[in-house]
C-alpha cells in the first residue's frame, strides 16, 4: 500500500514480508530512542505531554492498543499515507499518531467531552477529520467518509465491538484492512475473555476474513487485537 522510499529497507511491500517486529511498521512509524527509552515514534505536534526528540514524538504502547499491536510485531498491513477510518477516537491519543503517518484520517467519536480534546489534536493535522458520530450508525457519516479506504482502526471498548466492525466494513477497499482491539470486559465482565474473543471473531466472520489474532498483554490486559480483511 506504500512505496515511500524514506522507509527502512526491509519495510513490507507485500503480505509475505518477514514478521520481525520492525519489518511490519508502516512508513512514518519508527523505533527510536527518546529520553533514554526505546519506543515507537511518529513525527508530528506533541499531544499528551509525551517525550519528544526533535520532530519525533514517543508513542506509548501502554496507552494505545494500536501501539501495542505494532510493538507485538503483528502484521497490520497499515502503510504510510493510508486513508483511514478510526472508530473510537476519544481524546485523540492514538489517532494523533495514525494521522502522523497516514493520509486522510476520519476520526469517529460519539462522546462530546473527549471530542473537545480531539479537536486540539485535529487542528494542526490538516488531514485529520473529527466526526462526532455513533460508530454503530455508519449511514450517519457515509456522506462524509469516502469509500475504498485502506484501513479501519477500531478501539470502541463498548458492547458489540465486532458488530461495529461488521457494520463499517462497507468503507473498506477489497484489499483493505481492519485492525481492531476487542476489550473482553466491554462485552461481558464475568465471562472468560477467550470465550468472549471467540464469539467476537466469529461475528467478524460475517464480513471479514480474520488474518491474525493476538492478545495485547503485557501492554493491555484482556484485550485482543485482530487483523482482518473484507470478505
Amino acid at each position: 500500500m506504500s512505496d515511500d522510499p524514506s522507509t527502512s529497507a526491509d519495510a513490507p511491500t507485500s503480505a509475505d514480508a518477514p514478521t520481525s517486529a520492525d519489518s511490519v511498521l508502516p512508513a512514518g512509524v519508527e523505533r527510536r530512542t527518546i529520553g533514554g527509552e526505546e519506543t515507537l515514534a511518529t513525527r508530528g505536534e506533541p499531544v499528551y505531554g509525551e517525550p519528544t526528540d526533535g520532530d519525533w514524538r514517543a508513542w506509548n504502547a501502554s496507552r494505545s492498543k494500536l501501539g501495542a499491536t505494532f510493538e507485538l510485531g503483528m502484521e497490520t498491513g497499515l502503510a504510510g499515507g493510508d486513508r483511514v477510518l478510526y472508530l473510537g477516537a476519544a481524546a485523540g491519543t492514538t489517532v494523533s499518531h495514525v494521522a502522523d503517518f497516514a493520509g486522510p484520517t476520519y476520526a469517529v467519536e460519539f462522546a462530546p467531552r473527549p471530542t473537545r480534546d480531539l479537536l486540539a489534536v485535529a487542528e494542526p493535522r490538516d488531514r485529520l477529520f473529527p466526526l462526532l458520530k455513533d460508530a454503530r450508525a455508519p449511514e450517519t457519516y457515509a456522506h462524509v467518509v469516502e469509500s475504498d479506504l485502506d484501513a479501519i482502526v477500531q478501539d470502541v471498548a463498548t458492547r458489540g465491538q465486532a458488530d461495529v466492525a461488521v457494520r463499517n466494513a462497507q468503507f473498506l477497499a477489497d484489499d483493505g484492512r481492519l485492525v481492531a482491539a476487542i476489550k473482553a470486559r466491554s462485552e461481558d465482565v464475568t465471562a472468560d475473555p477467550e470465550a468472549v474473543f471467540d464469539r467476537a471473531v466469529d461475528r467478524l466472520g460475517d464480513a471479514y476474513e480474520v488474518l491474525e489474532r493476538r492478545r495485547l498483554e503485557p501492554y493491555h490486559d484482556d484485550h485482543l487485537a485482530v487483523v482482518a480483511r473484507p470478505r
Binding site: 466526526l131 462526532l132 449511514e139 450517519t140 457515509a142 456522506h143 462524509v144 467518509v145 469516502e146 469509500s147 475504498d148 462497507q170 468503507f171
Partner: peptide, 13 residues
C-alpha cells in the same frame, strides 16, 4: 449537513 445528513453507502467523495 455533516451533522444531520446521511447516505446509504460511501462513495468516492
Amino acid at each position: 449537513v455533516i451533522e444531520n445528513g446521511s447516505a446509504e453507502s460511501p462513495k468516492d467523495w
